[in-house]
Computed example of a mutant assay.
Amino acid sequence: MVKKLATGELDVAICVTEGLVAGINSNKDASLRLFGTYVDTPLPWAVSVATDAKFCSLDDLGFGAKFGISRPGSGSEVMARYAASQYEWATPQFAVLGDINQLVAGTQEHKVDAFLWERTTMQRHYTAESVRYLGTVKPPWPAFSYGATEQFIRRNPELLRDLVARIGQVAERFMERREEGLRFVCDSLGYAAEDAVVWAGYVGFSLDGAVNEAKVRAVARALQRAAVIGDCALEDIVLRPGQA
């Protein structure tokens, strides 16, 4: 989605926050910016390995593990680099495998040692014993944020404020009608009912879309330590609709 924002295929996208910040830094000519928050709670990234893997804990990945990723610059890569910096792992190696099914297959076939993906999405694969859960990496920042080009944000402040407000209203209704909302999640995404309940327990939507500057700075600092991005000032990342 970040690439499509940069090429003009999309006007607005809701992206994994760390992926958006990394994309803003790596597509400087496109002048991408983060302009709002969609999911204010952190996204838990599950670390998965083959069922017969020798790894028993996250610390066991610290000696040069090879990680599967969906594509270069994706959340699966960014979070693997973040985890390596947080846990002081050796510099990880990467193999581009594709979507979640290809990542699972690549791990089963020992093309890679591990991969990271959203925790609840992985539960069906753990239940089927396709791969084994090793642990969770949970960064201290909002899971999903809104992104657009600086030009689009400056030209459409009212449109974007209205968009965020309307999405916030829908999210509020979703939370008020929890049972109905969870049925929709199960029917649309194929989650088991108990998995949807777990998911709803850790997801918190931002109803006003406000940007927490301290948390954005935390993302940038963490990605800098992980060598995902270079130096990046806050004003090069965040631009609110209507901001001068």
Rank of each mutant, 00 (worst) to 15 (best):
residue 53 A to R: 10
residue 161 R to L: 15
residue 122 M to C: 15
residue 86 Q to G: 09
residue 205 F to M: 01
residue 169 Q to E: 15
residue 43 L to K: 02
residue 68 G to K: 00
residue 32 L to N: 13
residue 164 V to G: 12
residue 154 R to M: 12
residue 68 G to T: 06
residue 106 G to W: 02
residue 205 F to C: 02
residue 13 A to H: 06
residue 125 H to T: 05
residue 75 G to C: 09
residue 15 C to D: 09
residue 170 V to Q: 11
residue 97 L to D: 03
residue 49 V to I: 06
residue 139 P to I: 00
residue 160 L to T: 09
residue 55 F to K: 05
residue 28 K to G: 14
residue 155 R to N: 14
residue 132 R to S: 10
residue 103 L to Q: 12
residue 108 Q to V: 03
residue 106 G to I: 01
residue 65 A to W: 03
residue 185 V to E: 03
residue 164 V to N: 09
residue 185 V to N: 01
residue 64 G to D: 04
residue 14 I to W: 04
residue 181 G to Y: 07
residue 155 R to Y: 08
residue 73 G to P: 09
residue 111 K to D: 13
residue 85 S to L: 05
residue 75 G to W: 06
residue 127 T to C: 08
residue 224 Q to S: 10
residue 235 E to V: 09
residue 84 A to W: 02
residue 165 A to Y: 13
residue 93 Q to S: 14
residue 137 V to Q: 11
residue 197 V to A: 11
residue 180 E to N: 07
residue 236 D to E: 11
residue 49 V to R: 00
residue 188 S to P: 03
residue 207 L to T: 08
residue 107 T to S: 04
residue 167 I to K: 09
residue 240 R to F: 05
residue 53 A to G: 13
residue 214 A to K: 15
residue 22 A to G: 13
residue 50 A to S: 15
residue 25 N to C: 11
residue 68 G to A: 10
residue 106 G to S: 04
residue 158 E to F: 06
residue 161 R to E: 15
residue 182 L to Y: 02
residue 87 Y to E: 06
residue 133 Y to D: 07
residue 150 E to V: 07
residue 26 S to G: 07
residue 70 S to P: 15
residue 203 V to T: 11
residue 98 G to S: 04
residue 115 F to E: 01
residue 48 S to I: 10
